[in-house]
Amino acid sequence: MMIEIQGLTKKYGSFTALDNLNLSLDEGVVFGFVGANGAGKSTTFSILATLLSPTSGDAFINGKSVVREPKEVRKQLGYMPDFFGVYDQLKADEYLDFYGASYGISYSERQVLIPQLLELVNLTHKRYEYVDLLSRGMKQRLCLARSLIHDPKVLILDEPASGLDPRARVEMRDILKHLKSMGKTILISSHILPELAEMCDEIGVIDNGKLIAHGNVQTIQEQLQGEKRIIVKVVHQLEKARVFFEENPHISSIEVADEKGEIAFNYRGTTEDQVNLLRKAMLADIPIYSLTEEEKDLEDVFMAITKGADVK
């Protein structure tokens, strides 16, 4: 296991920010952490990054305890916080050089590494530019390069694409894909998880400090299949179709769009039930020409799982 979290709990007085979190991730896994603001994502990341002590429990990065061996853990992981600043009057290569030295990398090694990292994040042309003059997207990429300077096995990226324009988001996503191909274990939280779904091997949904769902994207989506949104298009007889679907016990929340000839409803039933429903509709002479399931992305997964929860 590259990351092993065991009963991690963090309390601030009577408030429980993290409640008995357990998680295991293999090497090379890209894990997406989904949760509302204040759900406990950043607290988890801060504990893993050795910035915060847990109230109880422990976490291990490549077998090293974040509580007992923080210095060893720091060698194993690269951390990119959600909000970060840069030093004025340092150039991009000096910025990386400083952090390289901070990880104990020798001068000669740094001279080789820095151009490679700048190339990885597409910032070679900005090597001698002052960091505070770079755009936000460039700063994010530079910070990502900074977190890679000591070649960590684990990357913790807290909202790496927040505040970026669409182009910068695409660039960031491409870099992350490249890092995945390099075999890095990546923990990532993001508001744009739907965009990142294709590269996440597993996702975890955290709410009020508790991990309420964990698995691969497919599994989590299947959990939602218990209630899916179906859109039916009919040629005419919209009212007749509405009455027909209303009578079905598996159907709820019907919405009719007259102008489009569409009926949308939530369906809770098995695949066989769905086949029967379609057969009965045909027998009832309802002129259906299209039946589609509304696609659910990770955002919907999150919204559905945390539905009704006390989101702060």
Binding site: A49, L51, K71, R74, Y79, S102
Partner: peptide
């Protein structure tokens, strides 16, 4: 925070 996650 970034500085504190280095090995210094």
């Amino acid at each position: 925070n970034i500085l504190l996650t280095t090995t210094q």
